[in-house]
Design a protein around this nucleic acid. Sequence first.
DNA 1: GATGAATGAGCTTTCATTCAT
DNA 2: TATGAATGAAAGCTCATTCAT
Lengths: 218, 218, 218, 218
Amino acid sequence: MEEKQVNLNSEGNRWQRRKEQRPSEIIQAARVLFVSQGFAATKVADIAKLAGIQPGTLYVYFENKESLFKAVIEESIKPLLHYADNIIDNFTDSPQELIRTLVQRWWDLLESDTCRGIPKLLTSESQNFPELTAFYTRECIDPARNMIYRILEYALNKNEIRLLNMEMASRIIFLILHQLLLHAHSFAEHEPHPVSTKAMLNAAADFIIRSVLKTEAN
Amino acid sequence: MEEKQVNLNSEGNRWQRRKEQRPSEIIQAARVLFVSQGFAATKVADIAKLAGIQPGTLYVYFENKESLFKAVIEESIKPLLHYADNIIDNFTDSPQELIRTLVQRWWDLLESDTCRGIPKLLTSESQNFPELTAFYTRECIDPARNMIYRILEYALNKNEIRLLNMEMASRIIFLILHQLLLHAHSFAEHEPHPVSTKAMLNAAADFIIRSVLKTEAN
Amino acid sequence: MEEKQVNLNSEGNRWQRRKEQRPSEIIQAARVLFVSQGFAATKVADIAKLAGIQPGTLYVYFENKESLFKAVIEESIKPLLHYADNIIDNFTDSPQELIRTLVQRWWDLLESDTCRGIPKLLTSESQNFPELTAFYTRECIDPARNMIYRILEYALNKNEIRLLNMEMASRIIFLILHQLLLHAHSFAEHEPHPVSTKAMLNAAADFIIRSVLKTEAN
Amino acid sequence: MEEKQVNLNSEGNRWQRRKEQRPSEIIQAARVLFVSQGFAATKVADIAKLAGIQPGTLYVYFENKESLFKAVIEESIKPLLHYADNIIDNFTDSPQELIRTLVQRWWDLLESDTCRGIPKLLTSESQNFPELTAFYTRECIDPARNMIYRILEYALNKNEIRLLNMEMASRIIFLILHQLLLHAHSFAEHEPHPVSTKAMLNAAADFIIRSVLKTEAN
DNA sequence: GATGAATGAGCTTTCATTCAT
DNA sequence: TATGAATGAAAGCTCATTCAT
C-alpha cells in the first residue's frame, strides 16, 4: 500500500526552503566567491572545489548557477528579514546607547558568517538581478530604515533629538551603516592608513549621535 | 539624368576613419556597461555595438578587454586626481557653506559624464583588480579624505567645530559621500519610496553639518 | 519479445568516458594533421573531429594548441630516444648487412605509426619551436649520428672500410636517411616518375655501402 | 570614345610576370618570413613591415596572401628553371671535378639571395599547395635529377663510373643535395657540434664521388 | 599609387551544464 | 547520490582584407 509521498517543502514558496538536506556548505562557498569576485567572474568549478565537492554534485542541489546565486542571497538574507528584532531588542536604553547598540549589532549581524558581504554583492549585481534587488530593497533596506526611524522617534519622545527631518536622517544613517559594510569588502584592505573596525564603528556611532541627538557639547 | 545618390550616413559611413575620437568613445561605452553589469558580465561585442564600431576595431585601440578596463578607470579617474582644487576652490565661505558646496561639487564632479559610476565599479571589482584599487585608494580616496580634513581644520580655526576626532570624522564624511554615489547606481532605481537627488544631497549636507559644526539648535 | 536494441556506436556513445585512451588518440590525430599541414594551418576543431571528440574535450587533456604540439613531438620522439638499441641490435653481421639493416630499421622505426612524419614536422617548425628543435637535435639527431659512426668503426675494425673521414661520412649518411623520411611526406606523392619505397631504401643502402665499404667492384 | 584598354600583361600566363613594376622587395621579405615561419604562421602585416611598406600597399601588387606565396615560389624558382645550364656549364672537366663543381654550384645557386630557403619552404608546404609542389617537382626536381644522370652518363662514357643503377644513384645524389639545403634552414643552428658549410659540401662531394666513381683507394 | 584605420569571419579557448557510470 | 569526463555554445581575440582618404 502506497502512501502518497507528501512533499512538505512545496516548491511554491517564493523563496524556497530546502532546509536540512541542502548542503549549506555550497552556499557558503558560493557566497564567499560571489562576494569577492562577482557573479560572472566566479566559476562553478571553483565553488565546487571550495565546497569540497565535484561540479556535478552542485547540480544535484541547484538547478543552475543563477539559482545558486538566488539561493545564496535568499539564504543569507533570512537573518535580516526580521533583523529589527535581532538588532535592537529593547528600547529602554538611552537613545545614545541605542544608537551605539544599533551600529554594533548591525555590524555583528551583517558581518556574521551567514551574511557577510551580501550588501556588497547586491550592490555589485543590482543591475544584473533586478528582482533580487527589488526584493532586498523592499524586505531589508526599507525595514532597516524604518527601524532607524523608530529609534529617532524614541529619541523624539524622550526629547533628546535635535531639530531635523527624521525621514531623511534615517536615510543618511542607513547610508553610513551600509557603506561600513561595503568598505570592509572593497577598499579596506588597500587602505594606506588602515583603521580598526572597532574604531570605525565607534566613529560612526559618534558621528550619528552628534548629528541627531541633543548633546552637551555642541 | 541621374542624380548622384547621396548616402545619408545610412550605411556608407561604416568605414569612417576617426582615429582621434574612437578611444574615448569606446571608453565611454565601456564605462557605462562595466558600471551597470560589471567587468566579467560585459561582452566586448556589446561595448563595440554601443560605441558604434565592430568588435575588431576595439582591438585596434586596446590590447584586450582587461586593458580597456584599466583605461576606463585611469581615464575616468583623471578628473579626480586633483579634484580637491576642482571641488573646493575657496575657503572663504562659512564652514557650513563650505560643506554644502563640498557635497554638491562632489556629486557634480563624480556623476559628471566622464566619471559617472566609477566608484561603484571600483567597489565591485576591487578584488579582481587589486592594483587599480590600490591606485584609486592612494590617489583618490586618501586625498579626498585629506581635503575633508582640511575643511574641518578650517572650521576649527574659525572656532565653529564641535568637539570630535577630526581624523575619524573625515572618514565617516567620506563614507557618506561615497555611498551617495554607489546608491545612485545600485538600489536607487529600486527604491519603494524614491527620493530626489537634490533632497538626498541636502540631507547629507545637513547631517554632516549638524554632526561636526557648532549650530544654534543642538 | 523485444530484443534489446543494441546501439552500434551510432550516436548513443557520444558520452563515452575513455580517460585513458583519449590523450594518445588526440595526439595521433594531431600528429597526422600537423605533419601534413603544419602547426599554424591546422585547426583545433579538425584535430578534434579526426579524434572523434568535441573541441572542448581536447582542452580537458591539453592546456592549449601549443602544448598539444609539444606533447605530439615529445610522445612521438620517445621511441627514438634509445633507437640505437632499437635499430641495430647486434654487430655480428657483416658491415654491409649492418648498413642494409640500418636503413631498413631506420625506415621501419621512423615511419611506424607512432612517429611517422615527425622529422618532416620538426624540419618545418624548427624556427617556431626552437626548444623542441634543440631537444630533438640533442637527443635524436646526435645519437643517431653516433650510432652510424659506431657502425663505421665496426667496419674499420674489420678492415672493410675505405679511406675516409668517418665523422663527416656519418653526417652525410644521416642526411640521406633523414631526407628519405622527408621526401615521403612532401614530394613523393607528386613525383612524375614514382619509385617504390623498397627501391629507394635499397638504392640508399647501395649508395652508402659503395661509398664507405671496400667492395670488389670499385 | 573609349579605346579598349589592352592589358599587355595578360593574366593568362600560368606564372605571371610582373617584371619591373613589381616590388621584388615584397617578395624578398615574404620569402624570408615564409621560409622561417611557414605560410600560415606568417602575418601579412609582418611581411609589409619587413618590406618597409604598409599592409594596404601589399594588396596593390598582390591579390592576396596566397597569390603572394605563389609569386614568391614562382619568382624564386625562376633561376632554377634552367639551372642545368647554370650549374654545370661544361662537361670537359674530369667527372670528379664535375661532381665537386655540381655540389658547389648547387649550393651557390640555391642559397643565393633570390632562392634561399625555397626547397625548405616547399617541403613544408607541399600538402597545402599541391599545384606548386607538382610544378616544382616537374620543373625543378626532375630536371635536376636528369642533369645528375647526365653527369653519370658522362662518367660512364669516360669509363670512370662504378657498377651501379644510374637512375637510382641520381635520386640518392639528389636527396643529399636537397637535404644539405633543408638542414641549413632547420637544424643547422641548433647543432650541438656545428660544422662549416664548406666542410659539409666537401664531405658530400667526397661521399658521392666515392660511391659512384672509380677511384684508386677502394 | 599609397595609406592605415576599420572590418568581420573565423579561430582558439572557456566554462556552465549534462549524463553514463 | 555522487561523480567527473565530455559537451558545445559562446566568448575573446586575430588578422587577411578592404576602402575612404
